[in-house]
Design a binder for these strands. Structure first.
Lengths: 189, 189
DNA sequence: CCTACCGATCGGTAGG
DNA sequence: CCTACCGATCGGTAGG
């Protein structure tokens, strides 16, 4: 499990970008945290932008892979929604810093990386929404506005990393159960 | 309805901070957007920090006032939750830029302003949670984890401004109805 | 991986 | 409200 210098730089950058924000983190901050001079970073990475792009596209791909897998499972729409909630929770627990960037810092992407990230994001949302629509059609899901339902689930899941960082003592299973309860079953008795 | 220069500067800053982020927005960007030289801004504001603090504390106070009012209404907990959802929607529709900063840029606050903002935020969440707990006690609300329920509602409402900016043609009444449906009644048939 | 350094830009001030 | 300017810091490169 030896980590290359590049991997260490990326991990450290994720943590700094998360706590200070991309713009407010300088390459000198990053160099100090890694234990080298700023100029030396450039032997491992091309630019500050490349770091952000690598982190975000990697995280985005985890979600695309998960979506692909869940779409192809032979289960009902509502169960797919549950699996997607679980996907978000698991990725966030495993890779909290990178997920925070996905929520907070993606607008600082430039050029092609921005375009690529954005189109993945839109594709993901479209596929998620299609599952909701199929659930509404089969009457497994209430006749709610699918855009509102999609947005509600995704907002909650996108901020999950921040909530999770403050709370302790929940197992993955408990988290999945409680978020499914609230997001799918609702509050009203 | 004449606006002072200071008000124009604050409004313009809110819009720039929203689209570029606080750190990535320079005082020269702001000056240009307002139509003066950077140095001249300082006749109306003390510092870049002061702008962010003024915008955020003002927005935070809108929520504190709304919470105060709703707490004192003689209605059941679940109806208070509905009113709070409506409060978030109305403030976000009226003051979209400032609300985006509340969600995205508050961590750039420094010193006393950070402390004050943070304590208001915590106070607001505590009072919101108490309403949920009272609803659970009276069995009007399902026996869900109140932290998870609080977090789910607040995440959705905090991102509402971004969703709303992309969608058109909803009246306030429709928005209130649809978000209450999804957040309170749930998805499962 | 470092020293030395580049041009650009930052938030902010002096003085009028 | 402007011109002129401050010291500090930025992302990044040259050359070893």
């Amino acid at each position: 499990m030896k980590k290359t210098k590049r991997e260490i730089i990326l991990k450290t950058a994720a943590s700094l970008f998360r706590s200070k924000g991309y713009s407010a983190t300088s390459m000198r901050d990053l160099a100090k945290a890694v234990g080298m001079e700023a100029a030396s970073l450039y032997n491992h990475i091309k630019s500050k932008q490349e770091i952000l792009a690598a982190l975000l596209l990697d995280a985005a791909n985890s979600f695309m892979d998960g979506m692909e897998r869940i779409e192809n499972e032979d289960i009902k729409p509502l169960e797919k929604i549950e699996r997607l909630i679980s996907l978000h929770i698991r990725i966030a627990v495993k890779n909290t810093d990178a997920i925070s960037l996905l929520t907070q810092e993606w607008r600082h992407l430039e050029g092609e990386a921005y375009t690529e990230f954005n189109s993945k994001r839109k594709d993901y949302e479209k596929r998620f929404k299609n599952i909701l629509i199929r659930g509404i059609e089969s009457e497994e899901i209430k006749n709610v506005n699918p855009d509102v339902a999609l947005f509600s689930i995704l907002s909650t899941m996108r901020w999950f990393y921040a909530w999770y960082s403050k709370k302790d003592g929940f197992s993955i299973g408990e988290l999945e159960q409680q978020f499914s309860d609230v997001l799918i079953v609702g509050l009203k008795n």
